[in-house]
């Protein structure tokens, strides 16, 4: 059986890098991995989604609708957008940050963050992570995604070892930021374990 995770956010939030670290960690534990993402035109400020699949053998990189085990949402609207991917009673880790899209331009009706969260809660087991709050405590707003990775690592369904996550972070992040990110990972982890 494969374990399928959807990473969803807005261009520039680090969705691709984070899903890479997750896959690198899974590979350290001997899992086969495949992931999909889109670069180029789709990247300019638009919605970004990356699919990461791990297992003994992974045949293809895309996740089926309604089959994802978990969603890691970097932003509330994009989390709600990824919901149809999630299986019934799947898990959602959501960063409590709402970036409203430019509705004036798109001609669509805006939604309130609370309404979007209600949609998410109706379908999934939700772990809300105050990524920005924790990051502020660490004094660097750029570690929000590592905090989310820590939260993901704490889910019981994720079979990847904590030490592998830490090793993958150390392999991917610039040396002088490694300790900061390991701390962020730990705090993210605790935010789920303590809740």
């Amino acid at each position: 059986m494969n374990l399928d995770v959807v990473f969803s956010g807005v261009g520039g939030q680090g969705v691709v890098v984070l899903s890479d670290i997750y896959c690198e960690a899974a590979m350290l534990d001997g899992f086969d991995v495949a992931k999909a993402e889109i670069h180029g035109m789709a990247q300019r400020g638009g919605s970004i989604v990356a699919y990461a699949r791990i297992g003994a053998k992974v045949e293809s990189p895309l996740i089926e609708t309604g089959k994802a085990d978990a969603i890691v949402g970097f932003e509330i609207l994009e989390t709600a957008r990824a919901l149809p991917m999630l299986k019934q009673h799947g898990t959602v880790i959501v960063n409590k940050k709402y970036i409203p899209p430019n509705c004036m331009v798109a001609g669509a009706k805006p939604k309130k963050a609370e309404d979007l969260m209600a949609l998410v809660r109706a379908k999934a087991l939700v772990h809300e992570v105050d990524g920005i709050g924790i990051a502020q405590k660490l004094g660097n707003l750029l570690v929000v995604n590592t905090i989310l990775l820590g939260a993901l690592s704490a889910l019981p369904e994720i079979p990847v070892k904590t030490v592998s996550f830490e090793q993958a972070i150390a392999g991917k992040i610039k040396e002088k930021y490694v300790n900061l990110n390991l701390k962020a990972f730990q705090l993210g982890r605790e935010s789920v374990l303590m809740s």
């Binding site: 400020g45 638009g46 609708t65 709600a80 669509a108 009706k109 949609l119």
Partner: peptide, 18 residues
């Protein structure tokens, strides 16, 4: 067949000039 998923009506976030 897999279960049909309810589509969610959400405002789009199209790509834009930065």
């Amino acid at each position: 067949q897999t279960e049909k998923q309810e589509p969610v009506d959400l405002p789009p976030r199209p790509p834009a000039l930065c």
